[in-house]
Amino acid sequence: MENGEPVIVVEKLNKSFGPNHVLKDFSMEVNSGENLVILGKSGSGKSVLIKCIIKLIDGDSGNINVLGQNIDDLEQDKLDELRAKVGFLFQSNALYDSMTVRENLEFPLRRHWSKEERADKAEAAVIEALEDVGLSHTINMMPAELSGGMRKRIALARTLILRPKVILYDEPTTGLDPITGREISQLMLDVQKKYNATSIVISHDLNCIKMISNRIIMLIDGKNYVSGTFESLHLNTDPKVKEFFD
């Protein structure tokens, strides 16, 4: 896909949890090569939105098109194939705590690579992904032996191992100290450059947002309230937008 072409198109997405109407006719487009940040209050539906994009949660109505495919039309096998092209970095890292770092990284390969491919190439792929995040020495360690920042990097390495075209980041710097947060943000930028991946980032961390975003969408009252660059939104005088930047 050429840079600038839409890779994710969300049209009039609605999602409710009981009486709580989280997403109301939410629409957006994400272009190839873009680093899009979704900004909004806690509970505003940002994580729900990216979970709908990867179909971890079903929307109530609306259309989601990812890499040219409508996710609601896909059979499970096709959906799994699509998911190999879309990486997801969970807020909690979601590392399998009963497996070593190596096993964590090899896990996504078991579904998408044949036994022969895994025997030939898995080791090299794991080492490359770990080198990308600067943690190749942790290959035989358990997640419990790693610090919070290291776990985030390992989770990112696991996301990268299938060379996704799109990466969804759910609050990647939450819970990290400012220095580690900056390191993770820089790592995200490096990854984006190396793999030419498109990113959607959910974040409240203004330093991270300023560093990585090409464009920001503000999710307010379940809608795509306003979008623009960090600088343009920073100067926006709308009180609902201003309160995020003050």
Binding site: K51, D80, V86, A94
Partner: peptide, 17 residues
């Protein structure tokens, strides 16, 4: 339960397993 609340089950699903 622990895998569910730490999103490990979701991570499995996302990885195609």
């Amino acid at each position: 339960g622990s895998m569910r609340v730490t999103e490990q089950i979701d991570a499995m699903e996302v990885s195609g397993t």
